[in-house]
Design a protein around this nucleic acid. Structure first.
Lengths: 201, 201
DNA sequence: GTTGAAGCGGATGACTCATCCGCTTGTGGT
DNA sequence: ACCACAAGCGGATGAGTCATCCGCTTCAAC
């Protein structure tokens, strides 16, 4: 189960591959393993050994962002008001989803389809479920909405904002937050209209 | 501008190609022009002549569905209550989007990127904008939502429902309607909660 | 320094893509 | 009925991508 530590040169190569891939993703270029190998001046086989498929590589590229999000989820769990906690976390998630092009595919994939991120994402989903459960307990959210609805809905919001491909990433993030606001209004239950999201941060 | 009518055999081939492609789409197979050609027992070049790219073919496959939707939009314009009209049309759209796998790409593409459907889709968007304008005029909808938000939001809802890939198409359509309901609640403005969608057409 | 395991790389065969061009067929004119 | 020719056909083919295999190199434990 546990992999023995990588040889020094191997670890270096792996790192290099990830860096190059990150540039590809940021530039919106298609991740092609042969191509990445050439750019990194590394043998094709080496790349394939570390990452059998483009998806696996993408996943690894996305990993830091998932970690960051997980920290934010845990931070949100410290917040007192369940609605604020949920809302702020969702906003953070949307922002990251729209800022880092590596993330949406990871989010859209089923937890178990993920080789490298699976565990991490499961933890994220758990924290997420907890936030949702608290909101439910407080009665501030539509009771028909389950935990398994949240990831798809989040991806849907991100997807919607991403369709406006003419916009630059920042504008798209803003749009995404606006769409999230719409969704949140739909989700919210309670006597008062939920406060709109703060201007962004 | 106007193309001279196709030779009889050519028209036949074209039709055959579309039929085969339709099967591909319905089965969720990837549309590969060479592949379609082989299945249809038609030369590759013939396929490429009629449809230079898989997208063009897909678009043509989607055409009847777009037409159907356009009719529904026009039908909705006959409805008295602006909110009901908008809501019912959106529900119909979601249902079609989730039922016919050829449609989402066409909807997600910019109106002008479409070779064969462009005109039709523009008409659809126009009817759509009219429905939205009426809702705005009646003050039953969030004033910040513009016509150009609607297609993305619709695609987002469809996308969200489609992520649950384990579900069969019918269940996914139901889920999509539920998500649409959430969105509609977010969109709606007025003293009373909007009536939920009827149980499905 | 030696040794064997871990890792490397690029040549290569399988496969997909889309074009080109010599041949066939439908059609409009006589 | 026949002809002429434009419209259309098809598949062979070159360009390009993908992923594997295996002989060679390098690391690190002793």
């Amino acid at each position: 189960m546990s992999t023995p530590p990588l040889r020094k040169d191997a670890a270096q190569n792996r790192q290099r591959i990830i860096e190059v891939a990150r540039r590809y993703v940021d530039d919106g270029r298609l991740l092609q393993l042969n191509d990445v190998a050439r750019t990194a001046s590394i043998g094709v086989a080496t790349v394939y050994r570390h990452f059998p498929t483009p998806e696996a590589l993408l996943e690894t590229v996305a990993l830091p962002a998932v970690e960051k999000l997980l920290r934010q989820a845990e931070h949100a769990l410290a917040e007192d008001d369940p609605w604020t906690a949920l809302r702020d976390f969702l906003a953070a998630a949307i922002e990251v989803l729209l800022t880092d092009p590596a993330l949406p595919p990871v989010f859209a994939a089923g937890t178990d389809a993920l080789e490298h991120t699976g565990d991490l994402k499961r933890r994220l989903v758990t924290a997420f479920a907890e936030l949702l459960a608290r909101a439910h307990a407080a009665g501030v959210i539509d009771s028909g909405v389950t935990e398994s609805d949240m990831t798809p809905l989040l991806c849907g919001v991100a997807y919607a904002a991403n369709i406006q491909s003419a916009l630059d990433p920042t504008e798209r993030a803003t749009l995404g937050l606006r769409y999230l606001d719409l969704l949140l209004t739909g989700l919210h239950r309670g006597s008062v209209k939920p406060a709109a999201l703060p201007p962004s941060r």
